[in-house]
Amino acid sequence: MQKIISYVCDHCGYEYETEEEAIVCEQNHKLELRVFEAIHTPIGEAADGYPRRVILTGEDGKHVWYTRDK
């Protein structure tokens, strides 16, 4: 019988063979995010009222856009 040990990133759930790889993955995730802007569209395009696009800002000041699926 073989014992298999793996390490899982707490943030994304990806499984790694080494603890070092999992730590690098965990440290890479941007966790301190805030909504910079939410871009809404008319009710005919998004009847549920949620924004079509959201701009997030990280600790480093970088802006990242996310667009929802229809």
Rank of each mutant, 00 (worst) to 15 (best):
K62M: 13
R52G: 00
D69V: 02
P42I: 06
Y14D: 10
L31Q: 12
R52A: 07
Y14E: 13
I43K: 09
R53A: 05
T57A: 06
C9Q: 04
D69R: 01
V35C: 09
I4T: 03
Q27P: 00
E19R: 09
C12V: 11
I55A: 00
R68D: 00
I43G: 01
P42G: 05
F36G: 00
Y50L: 14
A46D: 07
I39F: 07
A47C: 05
F36C: 02
Y7S: 10
E21R: 04
T57R: 09
S6V: 12
V24N: 11
E32A: 14
C12G: 10
I4W: 00
E32R: 11
G13E: 03
L56D: 01
E32G: 04
G61L: 05
G49Y: 10
W65N: 03
A38P: 00
C9P: 03
V24A: 11
R53G: 01
N28E: 14
Y7R: 01
R53I: 03
V54E: 09
D69T: 02
L56F: 15
V64N: 07
A38H: 03
A22C: 03
A38W: 02
V24K: 14
E37T: 08
A22Q: 00
R34Y: 09
V35A: 02
Y14C: 08
I39H: 10
H40M: 06
Y14T: 14
H11M: 02
Y14K: 15
Y66V: 15
G13V: 02
E17F: 05
P42D: 08
I23F: 05
V64H: 07
H40Y: 15
K70P: 15
K3H: 07
V64R: 13
